[in-house]
């Protein structure tokens, strides 16, 4: 029969990159911007992290380089959107393709190397799974228990009033975007380091970045909500291999997570609308 325990733990490791990237994007959206480039930043993180891991045979180096590469890509977003006032949606979309292309250019340099299983396991949990949960608690504390958090949320709710009150609109936004990029890069590195023995392959992100953006909505822009939605979507990916055993072709099973995330988005958006609760106001204005 099906090993329920292994699916539940697999769900957690599948959820980790989603949670990391979604927490980063949550910060960005809480500060009042939307960066749709998560997929691209993850792709670059996966390739650059894998390259660093292969070259130095170091896990920490791999994640550091992966994160920094994501942050570097998000810097382009900062320059274009904050600096030059370019359209944030367009810039985000372009960032996706830029990241996918760049990841290929970096990734081919890892080719031919025998991938080494870099990732040490802590029993059923690994470091980053623990880190992603700790990070969520930390972000919750930051957002709801500190003055900086209040400031950040105020910026996302009403930019003009925040400016009038002398809040650090630009500074906090830029920091959020770069942290978001770093986390997306780390999430990408996790994909190659944890799932594929430190190896990169073309198309490794496969929409994970977009699902992370979906998780931000599903988790209602809240760190703990994102833990739940991230774990839910991670579980969907973990359940994928089960479908062929009940007679659904493996190729169609690939669609399952995307399909169910779409259904979840529909339901959750409907509920938000019904209850009259809304996300950070300036985000809502830009996507609606």
């Amino acid at each position: 029969m099906v090993n329920v325990m292994s699916i539940l733990t697999n769900g957690l490791s599948n959820a980790t990159p989603l949670i990391l990237a979604a927490l980063g994007e949550m910060l960005v959206e809480r500060s009042g911007k939307v960066n749709l480039g998560v997929e691209g930043m993850m792709a670059v993180g996966a390739a650059a992290g894998s390259l660093a891991g292969v070259k130095w045979n170091s896990l920490a180096g791999s994640f550091l380089v992966g994160g920094l590469s994501g942050a570097l890509l998000s810097l382009i977003y900062v320059v274009a959107v904050i600096g030059l006032n370019a359209d944030q949606i367009v810039t985000g979309l372009i960032l996706v393709f830029m990241g996918i292309g760049l990841s290929e250019l970096i990734g081919i340099k890892t080719g031919g190397t025998p991938g080494t299983p870099l990732f040490p396991s802590l029993g059923p949990f690994d470091y980053l799974e623990v880190f992603s949960i700790v990070l969520a608690v930390f972000l919750w504390f930051l957002l709801y228990k500190t003055w900086t958090g209040v400031e950040l949320r105020a910026i996302g709710e009403d930019e003009l009033s925040a400016l009038e009150r002398g809040l650090r609109v630009k500074t906090l936004r830029v920091i959020s975007i770069i942290v978001g990029g770093f986390l997306a890069g780390v999430a990408g590195t996790y994909l190659s380091d944890s799932f594929h023995y430190g190896r990169w392959y073309s198309g490794i992100t496969g929409g994970m970045g977009w699902i992370a953006i979906g998780d931000v909505i599903l988790g209602y822009w809240h760190p703990f909500g994102i833990l739940i939605s991230g774990y839910f979507t991670g579980l969907l990916f973990a359940m994928k291999p089960l479908l062929p055993t009940i007679g659904i072709p493996a190729e169609l099973a690939d669609a399952l997570p995307y399909f169910l995330v779409l259904v979840a988005l529909i339901i959750v958006t409907f509920i938000y609308k019904r209850l009259g609760i809304s996300p950070p106001a300036s985000v809502w204005k830009t996507i609606r």
Partner: peptide, 20 residues
């Protein structure tokens, strides 16, 4: 009619079509 973000929904559909 349901205010579902079209960027995300269309992306999900891309992957569903790919699988199909």
């Amino acid at each position: 009619y349901w205010d579902v973000n079209e960027t995300l929904s269309s992306l999900m559909l891309n992957y569903i079509v790919l699988a199909f």
